[in-house]
Write a protein that binds this DNA or RNA. Structure first.
Length: 527
RNA sequence: GGCCCCGUCGUCUAGUGGUCUAGGACACCGGCCUUUCACGCCGGCAACACGGGUUCGAGUCCCGUCGGGGUCACCA
């Protein structure tokens, strides 16, 4: 039997972290069994702008490298892959359910059902529909219809015994049928409801394993009943724990962004992203720029492999030491049996830590192309990047080293791209390193002359140059290096000093130092 | 409220009756390295929800309590 799994999002225009985690597990499971992963769109007829709402979701999957064998854009032998286009099949299934007596036409008004429900509540017993307006045969149906009543189709659920099924994550489950209701599967207008549609589509698409969030656990008995009544062999089920929000056990929700922002770690995650997006000159509305949504990480420049890795660890683990999983390793080691049953909290700090590890492992030549689009979108580099600029960016990325945690972090190093006469000085650093220390200006001026005379301008030579200067002047390294840093970058912190000077090059270093000296010698213009 | 699920450091987790004075990772704290920042290295803090059983022995099995969550639609 070929393993076939599916993910069935409704086209909302957004890809939720919890959703992709589910999709990822489905994808891995099918891939490691040499099976297929199917994408089905659980849309409804009312859906407008389907394409617009679908595209971001497909983009998200593509970005993460979760590819689908059948579904939108690629088609497949079980088309259509849009639930709204499968209505005929759903109706046929309803007819069959009616034929075999697993469903009935119910002529009750919603208000009448509601009345029974409240009565049950009042008497403190669990609600169980009396089936008073159930049409046993055509005659009865005609009588109800003559009263002007309209019929929906309800499942005729068992009222004794238990539904027993095996869950690949939770083991054997037994649920009393009495706790179930006669769920509506078809409305009066003939349209079918999700549970019916889902079971029919899964079966017709040959889905063997339904791996989904635990929210659906309580839906399983009715789906199991539908499948069995239709003569299907129910698929294997695996219910994943949900992804919880930071700081509580509630389900992570995209709608609660404002609340999450009160939490320190989450705020840091968001602020980091915001800093990057701002540098690009954009202000993103919270409905798309939201760390609960996958797109956030793409915009900010996380590595898809890192996000995949983190999501994998949300509810699954291999053993007591291994945490880093490449695409290959995921396929090798993943198993449903090792999924945890308890909900896993989303932890921004851990995500960042995983991202850092992946970034560190990435060779320079792969980092540069990730970073270039940010520089271009910020307007710091021309659209076709010349070889010289490319080289310089590579040098910056190299010098940045571990400081570059996400691709967008490159925007922190604006000072390499600003014209020499527009460099902005950090006031505190300027004071501390240039104005306050006695003799700083003179030292800087003398070091400037050494730089001007320098023949080699690579980091090693520059370091030697400065060491010599320190010896000659009988000062400590700290007395000159900080002054140079502020003069040349405007900031108190940055890359290694000599790498920085080398990247800038002799001419720009001199220009910047000269400008700083000029300002230092003209107190009226003090920065 | 009914039904269902879950409960090991702050967080993610390892743990399938003895090797658990409970291991790892992230975070946090201290130290080292150091031209700043970041990295790295060393060390530290820190958990079996509680109560009963079963057993020679329980984080591990059973029952109960408590706590948290999910779900109870003519939504998907």
């Amino acid at each position: 039997m070929t393993v076939r799994t599916r993910f069935a999002p409704s086209p909302t225009g957004q890809l939720h972290l919890g959703g992709v985690r589910t999709a990822l597990f489905n994808w891995i499971f099918s891939r490691q069994h040499g099976g297929q992963f199917i994408l089905r769109i659980d849309d409804t007829d009312q859906q407008r702008n389907l394409q617009e709402a679908l595209e971001p979701i497909l983009d998200g999957f593509r970005w993460l490298g979760i590819d689908w064998d059948e579904g939108p854009e690629v088609g497949g032998p079980h088309a259509p892959y849009f639930q709204s286009q499968r209505a005929d099949r759903h109706r046929q299934a309803v007819s069959r359910l009616l034929e075999v007596g697993a469903a009935y036409r119910d002529f009750a008004h919603p208000a009448e059902i509601q009345a029974e429900r409240t009565a049950a509540e009042r008497e403190q017993r669990s609600f169980c529909y009396s089936r008073r307006w159930m049409a046993e045969d055509e005659d009865q149906a005609a009588r109800f219809a003559a009263e002007g009543r309209q019929a929906v189709v309800r499942l005729k659920m068992p009222r004794s015994g238990q539904c027993q099924f095996h869950d690949l994550v939770r083991g054997q489950l037994e649920i009393d049928w009495t706790s179930e209701q006669d769920h509506v599967i078809q409305r009066a207008d003939g349209s079918c409801l999700y549970h019916l549609a889902s079971v029919v589509d899964d079966h017709e698409m040959g889905i063997t394993h339904v791996i989904r969030a635990v929210e659906h656990l309580s839906n399983t008995p009715r789906q199991w009943f539908i499948a069995r009544s239709l003569g299907y062999e129910p698929p294997a089920f695996a219910h994943l724990p949900f992804v919880a929000e930071p700081g509580s056990s509630n389900k992570l929700s995209k709608r609660k962004l404002q609340e999450y922002l009160k939490q320190a770690d989450f705020r840091r995650l968001y602020a980091h992203g915001e800093r990057i997006v701002r540098a690009l000159g954009r202000t993103e509305p919270p409905d798309t720029f939201n760390p609960v949504l996958v797109d956030f990480y793409r915009q900010v420049g996380y590595l898809p492999a890192a996000l995949n890795n983190y999501l994998l660890l949300l509810g699954w683990s291999l053993d007591d030491r291994r945490e880093d999983f490449s695409r290959q390793a995921m396929l090798e080691y993943f198993s449903l049996e090792r999924i945890n049953r308890a909900p896993a909290r989303f932890d921004p700090q851990k995500l960042l830590a995983i991202e850092e590890r992946h970034m560190r492992a990435l060779p320079l030549e792969e980092k540069v192309p990730l970073v270039l689009p940010y520089l271009q979108r910020a307007g710091w580099l021309p659209e076709p990047v010349g070889e010289a600029a490319r080289q310089q960016v590579a040098a910056i990325v190299q010098a940045a080293g571990d400081r570059l945690k996400v691709a967008g972090d490159i925007l922190d190093y604006v000072d390499f791209f600003t014209p020499d006469d527009q460099l902005v000085y950090d006031p505190a650093a300027w004071q501390k390193r240039l104005v306050k220390p006695p003799g700083a200006v003179e030292l800087l001026a003398r070091f400037r002359d050494r730089l001007a005379a320098a023949e080699a301008f690579d980091p090693a030579a520059l370091e030697q140059q400065m060491q010599q200067f320190v010896t000659d002047e009988e000062i400590k390294l700290g007395q000159i290096i900080h002054a140079v840093r502020v003069a040349v970058t405007g900031k108190a912190v940055g890359f290694g000093m000599f790498e920085t000077l080398a990247i800038l090059g002799q001419a720009r270093c001199l220009a910047r130092i000269d400008r700083a000296l000029q300002r230092l010698n003209a107190p009226a213009n003090e920065s």
